[in-house]
């Protein structure tokens, strides 16, 4: 039997600033390979309040989303759990470096890289913020594909084929 892995809830008094009658929660990622073709470069846009909630739950105390070394380190650790590349043979490639963050009211952009073996067929597991909202919808656009080939990740389908190998 599987054990539910639950996130310890911290009573957070901050409401979701964008809350509406039908709240919706989305993220968007642009994905591209670096010039050497061995590292996935990711620009990930999330709702700042959702990321703050996720980091707060993960840490067990209030985290204020700001661009400083501590929050960067927590964010990278969070991404390492929820934004991964898998090979068919089970290898896992995790975000290794968070280059920076741009935090605003309407969005927080996270810039990070994942070194991977691009000789392999890879799938992307993108469960970012699905621990905060069950209705979270994550979109990712591989820049080497046509615009309509955007990938959609939901709680029911958090993993999608991304790369067919060189």
């Amino acid at each position: 039997m599987n054990r539910l892995s639950l996130i310890i809830f911290l009573a957070l008094l901050v409401g979701a600033p964008g809350a509406l009658a039908h709240p919706w929660h989305t993220s968007f990622a642009e994905l591209g390979w670096n010039d050497d073709g061995d590292t996935l470069e990711v620009s990930l846009r999330v709702l700042p309040e959702d990321l703050e909630t996720a980091l707060t739950w993960r840490r067990g105390e209030t985290v204020v989303l700001a661009d400083n070394p501590d929050v960067r380190s927590q964010t990278l650790a969070y991404l390492a759990e929820r934004f991964l590349l898998h090979s068919e043979s089970g290898e896992v490639f995790r975000p290794g470096r968070l280059l920076g963050m741009e935090i605003g009211h309407d969005a927080a952009w996270l810039y990070f890289t994942i070194a991977a073996d691009t000789g392999l067929r890879l799938s992307l597991y993108n469960a970012v913020l699905m621990d905060v909202e069950g209705t979270q919808t994550n979109r990712a656009r591989p820049l080497w594909l046509a615009p309509r080939d955007t990938l959609l990740f939901t709680a029911a389908r958090p993993e999608q084929s991304l790369w067919q190998g060189r």
Partner: peptide, 10 residues
Amino acid sequence: PDFEQFPYKT
């Protein structure tokens, strides 16, 4: 719900 992605709220 997806038990791999099981938010507290859910």
